[in-house]
C-alpha cells in the first residue's frame, strides 16, 4: 500500500515535471523558462527523496541538499544574466 502511494506520488511529480518542460519549451519569455527550470529542480528534490524511500537507502540524502543549493544558485545565475547580461560582474578596476 505504502509503495503504491509512493509510486503514485512519483507519477504525479513526473507529470508536473513534464508540464514544466512544456513551459520550458513554450515559455514566451526567458523568465518563464527560468522559473520552469527552478520548479523542475524542486520537483527533482522531491523525486529523489521519494526514490530514496523506495530504495530504502540514505545514500541519496546528500543529493537532496545539493540539489537545493544548486537549484538556488542556478536560478540566481539566470536571473542575474537576464537582469544585467552577465553572470559575474567585473570589479571596479576598469
Amino acid at each position: 500500500m505504502f509503495e503504491i502511494v509512493l509510486t503514485l506520488a512519483l507519477f504525479i511529480l513526473t507529470l508536473s515535471i513534464l508540464i514544466s518542460i512544456y513551459r520550458l519549451f513554450k515559455g514566451p519569455s526567458m523568465p518563464d523558462r527560468v522559473m520552469a527550470l527552478d520548479s523542475i529542480g524542486i520537483h527533482l528534490i522531491s523525486g529523489v527523496a521519494i526514490l530514496s524511500v523506495l530504495f530504502r537507502s540514505h545514500a541519496f540524502l546528500d543529493i537532496i541538499l545539493l540539489l537545493g543549493i544548486l537549484s538556488f544558485i542556478g536560478t540566481i545565475a539566470f536571473a542575474r544574466f537576464i537582469e544585467r547580461g552577465v553572470v559575474i560582474e567585473r570589479g571596479n578596476d576598469q
Binding site: A59, F60, D62, I63, L66, L67, L70, I73, G74, A77, F78, F81, V87
Partner: peptide, 19 residues
C-alpha cells in the same frame, strides 16, 4: 549516489559557464 552528486554540480557549473 556519488556520480549523481558530481553530475549535478558539474552540470550546474557548466551551465553557468555557458552563460
Amino acid at each position: 549516489p556519488d556520480l549523481a552528486l558530481t553530475q549535478f554540480v558539474i552540470e550546474t557549473v557548466s551551465t553557468s559557464l555557458f552563460l
